[in-house]
Amino acid sequence: MTDDLASSFFGLLSRTAPELLPAHRLSQGVPTGPAEQLSPHGTTIVAATFPHGVVMAGDRRATMGNYIAQRDIQKVYASDEFSLVGIAGAAGLAVEMVRLFRVELEHYEKIEGAPLSLDGKANRLAALIRSNLAMAMQGLAVLPLFAGWDLAGGLGRIFSYDATGGRYEETAFHSVGSGSIFARGSLKKIYRPDLDLHGCATAVVQALVDAADDDSATGGPDLMRKIYPIIMVAGPDGVHQLSDQEMTAITDEVIAGRRERPDGPAAPLV
């Protein structure tokens, strides 16, 4: 066997066209120093599991310093037919990395004739993030959240990462990005493992609204422009995105509740 990673697109690119790698392109001949202001930042991503899958939601805002770079950015993507990836951090690099990750998974599946296991996919993403370490040191870290339906185990799972490529499996729910502290606090109070898809989607929207409430970089639902969070679901039937109608219904419900109680639903004291 000549090459241990013959089915890896990342490996192929590194061998034959390294100039196409997201990090390589920037790390050559660029003076070191803070580079945060070069690319807009994506902010908050939330994921939560329910008995028949896992949902992932992202707000739609990208910021550059104190100004809003984009109001309708997409930060949650299907990485293949059974997994999702959401990006926080330097948007320019992150979008490129998601593109590379999607090809990586598809390339393996086509060459081997079978998809990678969910753990295998999570590990490949870790390798891609690790290759971006030089950029992360200059402030261009890419911190994705990965989630998917584990076909072998029959359950939804969530993985988070650090800039060095560390991979951590999360239980039940997790959030990354600037508003994640607030989103996680919110989910702690309202998440239940027995929620159905609608309940779980409502919970992550509540968490994003709480994040937008306290973090200036996270965008809440934009009622004037009808820009709502993107929610994608991975389950035994594959990946799909909640439709505009579904998102409008969930958001309207959440907003109506907040008119009565602006801080969101109250959890019992004990």
Partner: peptide
């Protein structure tokens, strides 16, 4: 077949 997949994926990515 593998050469075809490699070329197609490479081109689609670039």
């Amino acid at each position: 077949r593998i050469a075809g997949i490699q070329q197609a994926d490479m081109r689609g990515y670039a």
